[in-house]
């Protein structure tokens, strides 16, 4: 990324951040703020997915890391650890799971990798669903950060998740600019040539897996805090497909992609809930299905490149 483009990006983020930071002063409706919280959360989650995609690795089982993050916090608290420690555990356990899965999958590519990750997340569902200590299928309640019975206001959650998203994006940029990021995109573009030019592809792919899982786990810890109860459904296919869906709508490999994608998907899902249709959710899913088909055929690279195209022209990249 050249310096001019970077400046444009930073300026864009700052302006957006300012607008979003003052939004709760204007918008008081908790439902709308809830949608924003979900947009922020899914953007972070999709960003962690995107990070793995940077090194050309396709995951359809990211819910495994998200869910492990959620469950780790809840279980650690139940075992008597203080909350700060419990939250810190979440990304560590998720990162370890990432290392484990990465070692298993290191020789797998494309579809094989996607299927193996999917398999991993689906195996976790009955394991947690039949674990007595984790509350079986009913799930486990997640106690509040601030002592029993003290919950944050939706405005505070809003600011918290906004801050979480902003710092994740900054971190994403920083990591992308380092040797790591360069190595990842080299591996993505041509793994064989990357190996030839002296990149230890196995090691870098593992690192990428660990970092991605780490962030998904952290997002899970905060998500658990927000929803208050975790059930084994967190490992289901819906949660795994979401970040990939967001990436394909928003655009892969660009930091803007997950944010734009997440905003569009959430607004679309919530907006269609308000349309009075026969058979409500059924009709909604048919519309979403058709939109997805059209989208895949006519907007192959997602919306982020389309939206930011004029800037690319001026910026002589």
């Amino acid at each position: 990324m050249n310096s001019r483009l970077l400046k444009a990006n930073v300026a864009g983020v700052l302006i957006l951040a300012l607008i979003l930071a003052f939004l709760p002063l204007v918008v008081k409706d908790p439902y709308i703020l809830h949608i924003f919280v979900m947009i922020f959360f899914y953007a972070v989650y999709a960003l962690s997915w995107n990070f793995l995609a940077l090194s050309g690795q396709l995951s359809l089982g990211h819910a495994a890391f998200l869910g492990l993050g959620c469950y780790t916090t809840a279980l650690a608290v139940k075992m008597g650890f203080p909350l700060g420690v419990a939250v810190a555990f979440a990304p560590l356990i998720a990162g370890l799971a990432g290392l484990f899965l990465g070692v298993i999958c290191v020789r797998l590519r494309e579809w094989f990798l996607a299927l193996a990750t999917l398999a991993f997340s689906i195996i976790l569902e009955p394991i947690f669903g039949s674990w007595e200590f984790a509350g079986r299928r009913g799930g486990i309640p997640v106690p509040s950060f601030f002592g029993p019975g003290k919950y944050l206001f939706i405005q505070e959650y809003y600011l918290f998740f906004a801050f979480f998203l902003a710092s994740s994006i900054v971190l994403y940029w920083l990591l992308k600019g380092t040797r790591l990021g360069v190595a990842f995109s080299a591996i993505r573009q041509n793994e064989f040539e990357a190996e030839l030019s002296g990149i230890n592809t196995v090691r870098y792919k593992l690192i990428c897996f660990i970092i991605s899982a780490f962030f998904a786990g952290l997002a899970g810890a905060f998500y658990a805090q927000y929803v208050g109860r975790i059930t084994p459904k967190i490992f289901s296919l819906d949660y795994s497909l979401m970040p990939a869906l967001i990436a394909i709508v928003g655009g892969c490999y660009v930091s803007w992609g997950p944010i734009i994608g997440s905003a569009i998907i959430m607004v679309l899902f919530e907006g269609l809930k308000m349309v009075p249709l026969y058979g409500m959710s059924v009709a909604r899913m048919i519309i979403i299905g058709f939109l997805l088909i059209l989208f895949v055929i006519f907007a192959p690279r997602g919306l982020a490149p389309i939206i930011s195209r004029p800037r690319f022209r001026r910026g002589k990249t």
Binding site: L58, L60, A114, L241, A244, L245, A247, I248, C252, M285, I286, I288, G289, F290, L291, L292, I293, F295, V296, I297, P300
Partner: peptide, 12 residues
């Protein structure tokens, strides 16, 4: 990935 989501669109 596009193939996958095309198919998921059909599935829905």
């Amino acid at each position: 990935l596009r193939e996958a989501f095309l198919a998921i669109g059909f599935t829905y």
